[in-house]
Structures are given as structure tokens and as C-alpha cells.
Write a protein that binds this DNA or RNA. Sequence first.
DNA 1: AAGAAAAATGTAATTTTTTGACATTTTTAA
DNA 2: TTAAAAATGTCAAAAAATTACATTTTTCTT
Lengths: 283, 283
Amino acid sequence: MNILEKITQNKAVFSKSERKVAEVILSNPQTAIHSSIATLAKMSDVSEPTVNRFCRRLDTKGYPDFKLHLAQSLANGTPYVNRHVDEQDGPEEYTNKIFESTMASLEVARQSIDVNIVNRVVDLLTQAQKISFFGLGASASVAHDALNKFFRFNVPVVYFEDILMQRMSCMNCSDGDVVVLISHTGRTKSLVEIAQIARMNDATVVGITSAESPLAQECSYVLSLEVPEDTDMYMPMASRIAQLTLIDVLATGFTLRRGNKFRENLKRVKDTLRGSRYEKRNE
Amino acid sequence: MNILEKITQNKAVFSKSERKVAEVILSNPQTAIHSSIATLAKMSDVSEPTVNRFCRRLDTKGYPDFKLHLAQSLANGTPYVNRHVDEQDGPEEYTNKIFESTMASLEVARQSIDVNIVNRVVDLLTQAQKISFFGLGASASVAHDALNKFFRFNVPVVYFEDILMQRMSCMNCSDGDVVVLISHTGRTKSLVEIAQIARMNDATVVGITSAESPLAQECSYVLSLEVPEDTDMYMPMASRIAQLTLIDVLATGFTLRRGNKFRENLKRVKDTLRGSRYEKRNE
DNA sequence: AAGAAAAATGTAATTTTTTGACATTTTTAA
DNA sequence: TTAAAAATGTCAAAAAATTACATTTTTCTT
């Protein structure tokens, strides 16, 4: 946790002298990290051991350790912490909190990704005869997005929102088809069933879900995403974003694998859209 | 500048022993910042002054100063820069680049948001008789997602992918209805027309789009999002993510405005989903 | 309000850590 | 091969941080 925030929060707990130290540090943290304990003690007008005790109260091992923590806090301007929205927050606060915690979640998600599996899945996708993307609820829009993306690649790609359509589609799967199933929890019954159906019909099933979930068990490959608990709003938030970003990664891997010529193709697809748009005046 | 990079770059300049120190630090920077010069010297199998000289070669004042720099470098992992994917990147590289540039874009987008407009739009939404979300292409899935989110609020909410349905829906708009139009460029002709139709029928039109685009001109309120140019892959990437996050912000503002009781409602909605899921074993 | 107990703070000594001076070894180049 | 230069290590001095303990301040009880 950011040590500057911690100092602010614990202000009430500090003793009088410790508070003097806190003031000096908060008002000038950049100076603090370059001072020795003696200098800081003089600046705060307290004794050296008091500064040391202050550091320990913040759960650091001592002054040098404290400086390290402080340096780290200062390094990331606003550190991407998963701050929860609360009741009293105004628009400014909740906007920032949502953005920041989304970024924080992406960071965590990124670290949880196994690039070897990404690589293998990209392999699979490039060789697939047909790619299907299915998800339910909040993950439906992620599947929808994946459709949009892979459609540009001129690959047979399928997406349905309707469970029955999804099932039927999987019934008709065959060897060489890849089915990508998206679910944050990996506990949605009907999606787990879809996975089973697809596998019975020789499709390769890729799950974008959490590790060791029932869905993960049924998949040939699992791209597990660890995303910190969504904020308190009882809605999926960060999980979706992480899934989407992973889709971007797969799409990128796909185009890289296909090489340069293929990318020119993509440019053409993009240019085709031009007719449907108002021209941008060249400034 | 990031000191880890600096170490990597200067590797050629280092002497043999200094390189040993560099290896140890690069391979385990987290350990390094918590070690004394003596420990690090032993780990690198060199003498203490050698470590000290190593630090000075990197333009730090000495070992403690070096540790500070190192701590700061580690704090912001790799700062979120918009690094472009290129041809030779392996899975590891492109995965990280995509995630990082997504985070970087979110940061930029966040700063470009006008919270006053967010606040006003939240106002509008809470008082709306009916809310519609429309987008085309990549933005369609964003609208889809918004549907999913606002549907939970037990508000009349509408979403269509089909242009004709969108038009018809807007024809039937009336005073008190809010139409949210999503488009990165704001230059999609049919969406601009939708905006005009909606306004002719007294709906309030909110645009999530780029400032001063043709679409923005036609909107009652514009939530403009400035998103750095998407990476070179000719697909919308970061723009979508920013739009989605903005939707999260609006949804959050909405629930906050509605107060505590309302949030309990949301919890109930979430709990309702339980029947469709496999239980999580309590570990 | 007085006095004892507890908490906070400071002093001084000790320990740890870092740095500097100089000797020795290794490398480089003529 | 040898002399100069560069690199590295040894050891001692200096600086910094921490500990133990004494003193002061605060708090609580009677």
C-alpha cells in the first residue's frame, strides 16, 4: 500500500513527535528520501530514535526500509491501486477510482497470463477451420467484440448470444474447429455444457476463464486471467476489460503470425469502411 | 530514467566484476533493494567497494542512493508507455505491449474526461424514461455491454445492432428519453443520422465520441474521449476499452445517485444468477 | 489535585553499513 | 617482456542507524 496514504491515515494514531515527523515528510517527501535519519530528525525537531520509531510504526523494518517504501510511493505518481468507490464520492472521485482500478486490474491480469498458452492458442487459431466465440451475460459482449475483430481477418467466425444456437453450433463442430468460451467465474452451467458438447464433436475448446473452475476443467486450453475482485458495485467491470485486452492480444498474435501481406489486407478492410464515413478535413 | 534499463544498456561499459554485480541485480532486483552492500557483494562474489564503484558508475551518489533509484524503477514496473508492436515480437513481447499500451491509453483517456459532463449525464440517465445504447462495428459491442449493465438497474433500456431497428427505435423516442451513441471517430454516417432523428423526436442525445466530430455536433451532450492512436494493427483496440470504462463510470455514478437501497437491489440481481452456476466449494 | 503508572521522548553508546585510502593483482599495449 | 594503466581487494575510518536505558511528559486513579 502507498506509504504516503498510510501516513495520512495513521495520523491520528501517531504521538505528538511522530506527527511532527509525519508533517515534515508529507510536506516534502522528495527531500525526505535523500536525507539521513539525523537530518530528518533535525528538520522535524525530534530525536533520531523517534524518527526510527515512526518508521516502525508504519510496519517498515527501520529508516532505510522506510525510505525505500517512500521512494516507491513517489515513483508512481498516482499508483494504480484498486481503490473502492464509496457512498460519498463525487463524480471526480469515482471517475478516477474506476479508471485507476481498471488499470490496476489490467496490471494484475497481465502478470497472471501464461504466454506459452497464448502462443499455443494463437497457433490453434491461425490453423482453425472455423472459430466460435461464446459467452453469456457480461461476457457476451466480449464474445461479440471478438467476432468483430476476427471477422476482419476473413476467417470463418461464429458468435451467438442464444444458448440454443450456441449448442446447435457446437453440435456441428468437427475436427479443426476452435471454440473459445468466455466466462469470468467459469461456473455458468450452460457454458460448461457447451464446452462438453464441443469437445464431444472433436472441436478444440479454449477457455478464457479463471483457473481451476468447472469450465476450465472441460477445456483443451485455458487462458486463465486473474482479476482482482470487482469493485463493490455488484457488476462485472474489470474482468471484462481484461478479457477484451486478452482478445486483443490473441488478435495481434494472429496477425503477426500471418505476416506482412496479411496486414495489408487488414488495411484494405479498414479503407473499405471509408465510404460509410464523413471525411475528416485535413487540418 | 529507469535504472534497470540503464544497467542493461551500460553492460558493455562495465568491467568484469561490475558485470557480475549487474547480473545479480538484474536477475533479482527485489532482493537487491533489501540487501546491504555487504550482502550484495557476497552474492556477486566481489568486494564491497566494487559494488560501491558500480553504483557511482551509474551516476548515483553511492549505494543507498542507488537502492533508492532501483526501488523507484521497480515501483512503476515498466511505465505505461504506448509501445508499438512490431514484426519480430514474440508472444511475451506483444502480450506485454498490448497490455501496457492499453493501460497507457486509459490514463490518457482519464485525463481527457470532463467530470462535469459525466455528472450531468448521470443526472440525465437517472431521470430517463428510457435509455438506448447504439453503436456500430467495434462500438456495437460496447453498446451491448452497456445494455447488460443498465439492464441490471431495472430501467427500460434498449439496444439494437441493426441500423433500421435503431432508426425505428429513435423514431418512437419522446421527451425524457436518452439516446447514447458510441463511436470512436464520430464520423459514421448512419450514426450521425440516428442522432438527428433522435433529436427531432425530442430525445436527449449523449455522444461518447471524439470532440468536434460530426457526431459530436449533433449531440446534446458530448462525453469526449481522447484516446491515443490505436496500435498499428488496423483494428480498434484501446478506444473500445476506454469507452467501456466510461460506461462503468456512468453505471457507477448511476448507482451512487440512486443510493444504498438500490445497491441492495443489485446484489439481489446478482444472487439470482446463482441458480445458473456451479457452486464454489468453500475451501 | 497528588501521586503512581504508563507512555513518550531523548541521550549516549553500540552496532551496522558505507565509504575512502592505499596495496595488490590483472590487463593492456608498446 | 615489461611498464603503465586499470581493476579489484584489504583494511581502516566515517557515517548512519539502532539499541539500551534514563528522563520527561502524559494519563489515570484515588
